[in-house]
Design a protein around this nucleic acid. Structure first.
Length: 241
DNA sequence: GTTGAGCGTT
């Protein structure tokens, strides 16, 4: 296929920019993102239905609609809650996106000696990285340690390291694990699978994919059979939802 | 002042 450009803009009223396609007629998301930092996909207004449609995105490759790219102007999708250019995002949130599913969570510290204090814990765990908080759980009445506590690190790398080994703290071997009681306040935010309720029976997986791709790359659409009026849409883990 | 698998007053 001859070299082809597709017209891309941030919204329908803006001057479009021409973006080159690949030899096979596809367009790489990375090519779009080079001009529109933070882009996660494309959409366009269907000349037939007048509705916005998502452009198929599979593993970073944008695929032309059925009749080719044509002369339509394609609109850039940005991640949900983040419909702005990457260069407008401050450094800290850029780090959060980059880390994606690497957010830290509290770790439970099991097997602490009775005498170990929070200061002791902080002193010990600070050798692995910056510590956000430590807790020693104590009996409310007596103030005696219950022999376990919690720790949270700034960096996920420190968390992984700490979870991967046992710890000699004040003369006892202790274990650090992910708590199983609470899932941690960030777990729901980290979920890549969203529940889609009140589906009608005529909705197809393809239609759901087309719709939800405006929020990011869709890696799976699940529709239970027989019909149950709901579905699950799973997004690529690159973006945190 | 006891104990030794577990799961967090806010």
């Amino acid at each position: 296929m001859a070299e082809l450009y597709i017209r891309v803009a941030e919204d329908e009223n803006e001057e479009p920019m021409e973006i080159p396609s690949e030899d096979d007629g596809t367009v790489l998301l990375s090519t779009v993102a080079a001009q529109f930092p933070g882009a996660c996909g494309l959409r366009y207004r269907s000349p037939v239905s007048q509705c916005m449609r998502g452009v198929r995105l599979v593993e970073g490759v944008l695929h032309a609609p059925e009749n080719g790219w044509g002369n339509l102007v394609y609109i850039v999708n940005y991640p949900k809650d983040n419909k702005r250019k990457m260069d407008e995002i401050d450094a800290s949130s850029a780090v959060k996106i980059k880390r994606g599913d690497q957010k830290t969570s509290d770790l439970i510290v099991l097997g602490l000696p009775w005498k170990t204090s929070e200061q002791d814990l902080k002193d010990y765990f600070s050798t692995f990285g910056e510590v956000i908080m430590v807790q020693v759980k104590r009996d409310v009445k007596t103030g005696n340690s219950k022999g376990f506590g919690f720790v949270r690190f700034t960096d996920y790398e420190a968390q992984v390291k700490v979870m991967s080994q046992r710890h000699m703290i004040d003369g006892r071997w202790c274990d650090c694990k992910l708590p199983n009681s609470k899932q941690g306040p960030d777990e729901p935010m980290r979920s890549r699978k969203v529940f889609v309720g009140r589906c009608t029976e005529d909705m197809t997986a393809e239609e759901l994919r087309q719709f939800f791709m405006q929020y990011g790359e869709v890696t799976d659409v699940f529709i239970p059979k027989p019909f149950r009026a709901f579905a699950f849409v799973t997004f690529c883990k690159f973006w945190c939802f």
